[in-house]
Amino acid sequence: MPIAEPLDPARARRIAVVRLHVNGQAYAVAAPTHWTLLELLRYQLGLVGSKQGCDKGDCGACTVLLDGLPTLSCITLALSAEGRHVETVEGLGVGGEPHPLQRQFAERGAAQCGFCTPGMLMSSAHYLDELGRAASPVVRQQDIAAALGGNLCRCTGYTKIFEAVQAAADETCDRARALADGPGGAA
């Protein structure tokens, strides 16, 4: 559902084509040069999972992964994503199955109004990525709090969110250990 920006000739040169990957798929998207990445995702690609909260960098509701790093799409120009890889909350689950984080958030009541949830999930997904890459992963409360330090929630008081991330992180560690122990499993 592209938004109707006036395309008068005087402004035509201010429309650019952005080539980027979103959730693994390649796109070439026409967007006004002053659009943010969040606007491109929501209004040009219809990916409305990423939320427009404060729209100025304070809340984290618009968090996406840009080349793997948590990034605020509300203060990133669409053109800054040229040639790069974007992951949004829509890309978290695989084949209709929710991501372990999404399952834990749902089971543990980590979302109330849900407005912060997509951003929380993307920051947490990055935390799990890092954990999965660690040589000997250890789940620490303070690391979870630090990883979510740029995401505000008005509803939950954070406790349920931390619990959900902790549970998904424990699963990640178990999987990493099982892999390290090989197909025979732990002795």
């Binding site: 960098g57 840009l66 790093l69 990034t71 605020l72 920051s123 330090g149 740029g150």
Partner: peptide
């Protein structure tokens, strides 16, 4: 400075 996302940017 600021938050993890902002430090990445």
């Amino acid at each position: 400075v600021a938050s993890p996302q902002i430090r990445n940017m």
